[in-house]
Structures are given as structure tokens and as C-alpha cells.
Design a protein around this nucleic acid. Structure first.
Lengths: 385, 385
DNA sequence: CACTAGCGGAGAAACGTATCTTCGAGTGCC
DNA sequence: GGCACTCGAAGATACGTTTCTCCGCTAGTG
């Protein structure tokens, strides 16, 4: 192969670098043009199979790997999806703090990979140093607070955004959430039927959708049935505060005879607090908490939990986002969709489309007065996927 | 501003697209050249502060965001680090399966973000569809199996690779691991001192470093002290198999009077199995397991755990990787380092540099015969960061 | 035989940035 | 007054693809 075989000849032959083979090298080695190589590898042009396979073979032999950066620059697609993860305080993230986020992120990653996308974990804080340096095709936002500036900016800059959790006051492409109101009402009814007279709530102080909707549903229910609300709120991200709040709740003069805890560790904390006060569960105190952890199947007694089905949510969020990404033909033309980001082609300025996913109440001994108390913990349920 | 102000004039004025402002638009609006804009924003050239601030102001006004793809193509750096996550079977990932991985990934993410990098979650399976489409500056590999083809290919293609877990037989830039042998020996000694006569092991069937080194250390210890090995192995990724294996171990005729379980759920499973066989812990059976979960502080009795300190590991792995990335000047020149990937500039072909991190044994009631048995679970330890 | 269709493929223009090189204008110095 | 030197900034090129446009050729068709 002579130096003249170097297609387009722009590269100076003097300092011919010994780096990774580019598409030009493949073209030269196969004796075809760059166009043909690109078409052959991407299955795009009209080429006889013989040329296709020959080019592919040469590319394989040279160990050719197309440059993702160049492809992204040219096509405008990176195959990357941002996963925004709430960051409490300084460094640490929710991400894996609660089983819900962990499962959700796992399902989202899996769904994205299945469709050829990869997830980039990014902090919800507006550190533009990192955000600005990454070409994202879209973003999944977990439970954005009201008026999230990050979401607003992303949306404004044309990046599709799908949120887990109904967004408070910021525009998104779409959102997915559980029907938190129905879930809470279902639990309260369940506890009432089990004989609860005064149901307490362990809730959080933050303004995310989950906490807000759940608390409002509880207060509404109290107003409806004429019960005085009995609740304690604490910063959910503080692992120590939960135990204190559980203790406070059971120490109140108007002590509830049933409690629903909104957060994962509440079951353990409430159980411990009940022991300290000599309360038997479920005889003196009915217990339910929202959790994805299966440790509550093995506690003494096993605790009834509400599962938000995070896997379903994560999968749905990602699929919705990728649908939006691939629906936008961000290629040629005037592309009005860039100025008025896609709302699934819904005309007008209606609210973004939302999807409500069902929850599941896993009833165990802690919320049943006349349950057959199983001293031996039941066999581990088959790991549902 | 006239159409002629369009610098370089390559863009056809007829279909002047209304898309995001590029560096050219900023240059035109500020009345300077592209070079000046680039230098002003990146703080690179020699410019008076007045020009700098003016350009920055114009860029801000136009909402200019540099294209990450173009920057990556030009500089060769994407700011992206791959996080390889083992995938058992089909879709699901370890990722968050065990608390160890979750904590490790969280710390790694945080450390990367702190240095201006973001993590991309990628499967360990060789699905090139995804891997090839992403420009990575480096990769973190969690516990690669022997002869991992993925690691080999990454390394060969010049991407720095740092592994969590000493790599069996594939070249990496660097690796970080716990001193598993010392940890296991420490536990066995600890159990011996507590009065154990026959110590059993609950181990895994996979070939990862952790399982292998730990099992070998156990067998070596048995040979040294003259105890017949008593162990059961099971596929660690199968949540149901652990309980069965725990049961098998305690059902053996040569039942051990102390057990160390290598995996997170083993403590719960062993405790349940012990109950089924009427064995009291720690009186009839001493128990230790490797876990990062603090649920073992609240079990009945609390269980002694070995912590691998995943946060430290994750932070170290990422810092090592970024050091390697930024140490390589993959810019101009012949760049021999591309052909012989960096080993921290260590001459010759010695083994890649490894770092051993200490573990921590958290001693609780389950491994102490004469412990003051605390019926009431102790207060939750302050969440160590 | 002339004309059209379709096939196989080449050329070159982007994509948007960073950076190397060059270049003019001012300034102090001998 | 010429010369070297620095400052400030512009020009041009390269990064490695994808893709739009176009061209030659062959075979079928009237």
C-alpha cells in the first residue's frame, strides 16, 4: 500500500500516527471509498453483499472501531441518557439509599441497555461542570422538586425529560408515577378494617411529590372519616431521624393504634419503638410501611408493606423517554419540535402526558389482628422479576 | 447584523437553522473570532480581561452551550467513565443486588463527579452494540472473572481499566481489592477464640476473586489447624439458593459449631436455618457473615459482620482510574503509551500496581459466647460516612 | 440506435469545537 | 529611526464520521 492510497490525502504522511485505524484506513485497505465503508458497516447504502462482507472483513481485521464522538457529532445522537439522582446535603446520593431508587435505577438501566442506550448517573444539583460536558439524548429525572431549575433548563434546551414522580411545576416531556392517593387510601381502609381506631402517619418534611401526595391523601382521609390527624414528619434522608420520629409518634398522648410509615426504614424503627414501649404488634399496634425490601418478610412479626413496583416504573420511564427521543426527527428542516419540545405530538399546550402505575400491598402479620401468627418465618417468596 | 457577518461563511444563509447557538454565532455577536471565543470561555489564550468578560457575557446572553460531542471529538476526552456491572443470567444486574455493589457504585459515582467525570453504567457482557457507541475515557470493572474478554479488549484498545478485585489473568491498568485472605483468617481466629471447634463456610460457586481467595484462605487455614473443611457452595446470585445451602450446611452429620457466610444474605438465612434446627445463636452456633447491611445490628441476636468498606474501594478505584487517564497525554506525538498502555509509567512488564484496602470486623453478639446478651437491640450506630 | 432506469459507488460538504500558526500593531531599547 | 519583542486576535486545519449529491456504466425498451 502506497502513501498515495491514503484517501483524501489530508493526513500528512510524514507524521503518520500509529493510532487506531479510522474509516479511511479501512477504505484504503479494502480499495473502496469512505462512503462505501460507512454504508457497508451501517447497512445503509445499496451495495452487493459481496462488497459488504469484504469491507466488514477488512474492518474486523484492522480492528476498526468507529469513533463514538465523531458519530455523535454527525448524527446528533449519543445513545446516552442521563439519570438524575437526588443528592441530599453534600456528596452522598439517594441512588442506592433506598431500595426503591436502587430497584428503579436497575430496571431503568436494564431497559435502556435493551434498547441500545446507556445511562449516565448525574447529580440533580446544578453543577454545570458535569452536565454541560456530556451529550445527552434525554434525561430521566427522579422525583423533581417543585420548580426544579435543572429540569426547566434541560427542557428549554431541547432535551427530552421524563420524570419519575408527577412534576410539581416544571414542564417535562412526560411523567410516570404511582397513584399515591389511591395507595394511601387503600392502606388506611385496610387498617380500619383490621380494627384500627386511630391511624398515625410517619411522613417526611421534603416537598417531593411522593411525600406531598401521600400526606395530603392521609389528611383528606382523616377529614372525611372525622379522625384527628396524628403524624410526625422528619427529614427522610437522615437515617437517624427516622428512629427518633418513630419514637415521638408512639410517645404521644394520643398514641395511634396503627401506623403507616412512608419510608423504607420506618418498619424497623417502628417495630423497635413499639418494643421499647411494650406494645405488641399487631395486637396493640398495627403496622404498615412503604418498602421494597424483603427483610420485612422475615421480621418478627412480618410487616405488611406497600410496594411501589419500582421496576415497572423504571422500565416505563425509560421506554417513554426513548420513544420521545426517537420520535423527534432532530435531523433536517426547520424542526418546530425543537422550539416547542415534543409532547407526544399532542397539539396545544395541555399538560404533559402522565402515566399512573399501580402499587401493590403485601399483607403480612403486622396489619392483621386475627392472623394465624406464624412463629416460624414463612419461606422466602419466589423472587419475582 | 448582516448575513455577511457569518464567520467563515460556510453555512448557507438560505436555510439558516434556528437551532442552538454555536460558537460561530457567539463570535459574530461579540464581533470577535472563533478563536477568541474559545479562548475566552476556556481561559486559555492571552486575552485582556475586558474581552474575556464581554465574550462570556455574549455567550451567556445567547444561551450558548458548547457541544460536548464536538469537544470530545477534538480533545479526545469525553469525561465519561464506564462502570461495568456484572450481569447474572439475562437482564438483571448485580449493581444494587448486594449492598456492597450499591455502596461501591455510589462512592465511585460521587468520587468521579467530584473530579468532573460522570459514570456510565454498562453491562459486563460483551454486547458491543452499546460499548462501541460510547466514547469512554476509562473503565471501572467490578470483579472481573478470569480471562475476561471484555477487559482484554478494552485494555488492548487503549482504554485505561481499573478493577475492583484483583484480576485473575487479564491485564489491567491497576486494581484495588481487600485483603481477603487476611480477613478470612482473622474471622476464623476470632471464632476459634470464641470457642469454636469446627468452623463451617458458606461459599459461592463462581470464579470471581472474592469467592476464590476467601475459599482458599479457609481451606488453607483448615489444613494448618488440622480441621476437616466443612463447607457448602451455591450460586451466589440466586437468592433462593442461599437459604437452601444454609440449611444443607446445618443438616450435615458433621455439623459445624460456627459458620462464616461469604455473602450478604447468609446471616439471615443461617439464622433462620438455626431456628429451624433449634440451635441457639451464639450458644450452639457462632455466626459471622460478610455484609454491608446494618440490618444485622438489629437482628435477634445481632450478627457479627465483616465489612469490606466498599466506599473506600469505590473512591480509590475511581481516583486511580482518573489519575491514569489524566496521566496519559493522549494528545500529540508518537504516543507510545497507546501501544503499551500505561502501567503508571512503570518500566518493564511487571504486574499492574495493586492496592490492598483493609476490612473491618464488626463484632456483635452472634460470635461471642460470653457476651452480655442485649435483649433490647442496641441503638442504631451513628451512620458512618 | 437512442433513451431511460437502476445499480454501484465516489466526492465532498457538513457537524462544532480546539489549537497551531500567522500576523499586524504597538512599545521600549539601543 | 530601525529592531526585537510582546500583546491581541484572526485564519485555517484537523478531529472522524454520516450523508447528500452526483456520475459512470450497463441493460432493458421503444
Amino acid at each position: 500500500m502506497t502513501a498515495a492510497a491514503n484517501q483524501s490525502g489530508r493526513r500528512p504522511t510524514t507524521s503518520r500516527r500509529l493510532e487506531r485505524a479510522g474509516i479511511r484506513d479501512v477504505a484504503a485497505a479494502a480499495g473502496v471509498s469512505i462512503t462505501t465503508v460507512s454504508d457497508a458497516l451501517n447497512g445503509k447504502g445499496r451495495l452487493p453483499d459481496e462488497t459488504r462482507s469484504r469491507v466488514r472483513e477488512v474492518a474486523e481485521r484492522l480492528g476498526y472501531r468507529p469513533s463514538a464522538a465523531a458519530r455523535t457529532l454527525r448524527t446528533g445522537r449519543s445513545g446516552l441518557i442521563g439519570l438524575t439522582v437526588t443528592t441530599y446535603g453534600e456528596e452522598p446520593f439517594t441512588f442506592t439509599e433506598f431500595a426503591y431508587f436502587a430497584e428503579m435505577a436497575r430496571a431503568a438501566t436494564s431497559a435502556a441497555l435493551g434498547r441500545g442506550y446507556a445511562l449516565v448517573v448525574l447529580p440533580a444539583s446544578s453543577r454545570h461542570d458535569v452536565w454541560g460536558n456530556i451529550a445527552l439524548d434525554g434525561t430521566v429525572v427522579i422525583d423533581p422538586p417543585d420548580q426544579d431549575p435543572l429540569v426547566s433548563e434541560l427542557y428549554r434546551s431541547g432535551v427530552p425529560v421524563v420524570s419519575d414522580g408527577k412534576p410539581g411545576n416544571c414542564p417535562v416531556t412526560a411523567w410516570v408515577d404511582n397513584d399515591h392517593e389511591a395507595a394511601v387510601l387503600g392502606i388506611l381502609d385496610h387498617l380500619s378494617e383490621a380494627g384500627a381506631r386511630r391511624i398515625g402517619l410517619l411522613t417526611g418534611t421534603s416537598t417531593d411529590t411522593y411525600t406531598r401526595l401521600s400526606t395530603e391523601a392521609y389528611l383528606g382521609w382523616c377529614a372525611k372519616v372525622g379522625q384527628e390527624p396524628v403524624y410526625e414528619a422528619y427529614p427522610a434522608h437522615d437515617p437517624a431521624a427516622g428512629a427518633v420520629a418513630a419514637d415521638r409518634l408512639l410517645a404521644r398522648p394520643d398514641r395511634p393504634d396503627a401506623v403507616y410509615g412512608l419510608f423504607d426504614p420506618n418498619g424497623t424503627d417502628l417495630l423497635a419503638a413499639a418494643r421499647r414501649y411494650g406494645l405488641r404488634v399487631p395486637d396493640d399496634l398495627l403496622l404498615v410501611c412503604c418498602s421494597e425490601s424483603d427483610v420485612y418478610a422475615a421480621t418478627e412479626p412480618p410487616i405488611t408493606t406497600l410496594s411501589l413496583k419500582p421496576r415497572r416504573i423504571g422500565t416505563t420511564v425509560v421506554n417513554l423517554l426513548i420513544d420521545a427521543i426517537e420520535g423527534v426527527d432532530s435531523g433536517t428542516g426547520v424542526d418546530i419540535a425543537r422550539l416547542f419540545p415534543p409532547r407526544f405530538r399532542t397539539a396545544g399546550t395541555g399538560p404533559p402526558p402522565g402515566t399512573l402505575m399501580p402499587t401493590e400491598l403485601i399483607v403480612r402479620a403486622s396489619s392483621q389482628r386475627r392472623s394465624p401468627r406464624t412463629t416460624v418465618s414463612p419461606p422466602r417468596p419466589p423472587g419475582e422479576v
